[in-house]
């Protein structure tokens, strides 16, 4: 019932450590989503504030430090939430990547958030994956994690039970 991956080379590389381009793009997507969420948050809060406490509606222009902090927090939250549950953030889900422990087990929440903070603070650490023999970034080395190709999420592997007449305990 699993979804078919037509490219045989890609099929063979499922479950292997991912390279730097895929991972960089996934991180860029996550960063973009954090930007969008932060903008929406600013706009929403500003609108509510102006509705109740101000005479005119204005476009918020927060200080650079505030923006960066909000984006950082949102990024860490979304990354940590995704990696700590399925191992996939939204960007990684898009590119088809998954973060797991070096022993292939799912990340613990603390491990996931630590990795998220490191990634958000020093994204340049990803460059190590270009040179490391096992495609590890600085964050991977510190958190003992690996990033693998896994295009098909678990739900696409699970066959949906077919409803049949006379099936007991339906």
């Amino acid at each position: 019932m699993s979804r078919l991956i037509r490219n045989p080379r890609a099929q063979a590389l499922q479950g292997h450590r991912a390279g730097i381009v895929s991972r960089a793009l996934a991180f860029a997507a996550d960063l973009g989503i954090a930007f969008v969420l932060a903008t929406g948050l600013f706009a929403g809060v500003s609108l509510l504030w102006d509705l109740f406490f101000s005479d005119d509606l204005g476009v918020p222009r927060p200080a650079g430090g505030v923006s960066a902090t909000v984006i950082f927090v949102i990024l860490v939250l979304t990354l940590g939430l995704g990696w700590g549950s399925t191992g996939r953030s939204i960007g990684k889900q898009l590119v088809g990547l998954r973060v797991v422990r070096a022993d292939a087990a799912p990340l613990e929440p603390g491990q996931a958030y630590l990795r998220a903070i490191l990634c958000a603070l020093v994204p340049i650490g990803l460059l190590l994956a270009l040179f490391d023999r096992r495609n590890r970034s600085v964050q991977d080395v510190l958190c003992k994690t690996v990033v693998v190709y896994d295009w098909v999420p678990e739900v696409a592997h699970v066959p949906v039970p077919r409803p049949q007449s006379g099936q007991p305990g339906a």
């Binding site: 191992g87 996939r88 998954r98 799912p106 613990e108 896994d150 098909v152 678990e154």
Partner: peptide
């Protein structure tokens, strides 16, 4: 396991 469980 590519087809293994993912949700922690």
């Amino acid at each position: 396991d590519v087809a293994g469980p993912e949700i922690r």
